[in-house]
Amino acid sequence: MELVCPAGSLPALEAAVDNGADAVYIGFNDETNARNFGGLNFNDKNALRALERIRNRGRKLFVAINTYAKPDSFARWQAAVDRAAGLNADAVILADIGLMGYARERHPELALHLSVQASATSAPALEFYRQQFGIRRAVLPRVLSLKQVQQLAAASKVELEVFGFGSLCIMAEGRCHLSSYVTGESPNQNGVCSPAKTVEWRNAAGGLETRLNGVLIDRFAENENAGYPTLCKGRFIVDGKRQHALEEPTSLNSMALLPELKAAGIQAIKLEGRQRSPAYVAQIVRTWREAIDEVLQRGADFSVKDSWRDTLSKNSEGKQTTLGAYDRPWQ
């Protein structure tokens, strides 16, 4: 089972490698990746340094080009694929079908991973991507229950990667434009949900207020844990009650399911968080490395240690974790 870890900077990449990542995924510093934030990600110089450090340590480097190209600037996304191929990255993680066609034709030797943003949730969908574009691996959307993941794994001819840990959003993966209703920009088009230039935090009488483009989306009382300022995690008055109408600030943690995922033949576990610091990367990668090693050694005898759970909870959005859709027996 491969441990695939996030890096938004060189120090984060080093933290991932030092703490046991098998593969690290990065993005270029523009809208071709879904963590397009100021000061984050890799220019050509740093991408080369990243590759050098990865090669020195015998790990793998993936490049996420996981947003949808715009009709008037497709060339920028093509250039990103060319840059990744030029780097000799071990794979590119793509969502846009046009871009996949381009990568397949132009760089037939470049391994393609289907991004979670492509939202392929059925065996025929995965098979289509395999036949058309020769994808080697697919990252499964976080909307599937464990049983559905197991069924897909049994039927799939491509490697499957699932999410182990990270901030959750509303999970309309590849289809979410919620952010753009308020800010004009969304993750799949502009690589950013709630762009920082539209976010405002203000201390007011009722607590800490969050505004997106001037629209109030939440208010936190003094001791309440906060989350990312996204519309889906805001609190709104519905039927006279102020509540999380769509999603609570929380992080997914599927560690408890590691034995089942391994038995199902899942080839890789992905950790989320390219926007986080090296300190986060070091802590969660070390924790997952230990857990995966334990599963490989003990199989079904595995149980989640309290110290692992504590570290993951501490670093979670809203300070809480969930099994998310994995734990939906009715699905």
Binding site: N225, Q275, R276, S277, A279, N315, K319
Partner: peptide, 8 residues
């Protein structure tokens, strides 16, 4: 991690 401290 600063985000962790921010959430808390």
């Amino acid at each position: 991690d600063p985000d962790t401290l921010f959430f808390q």
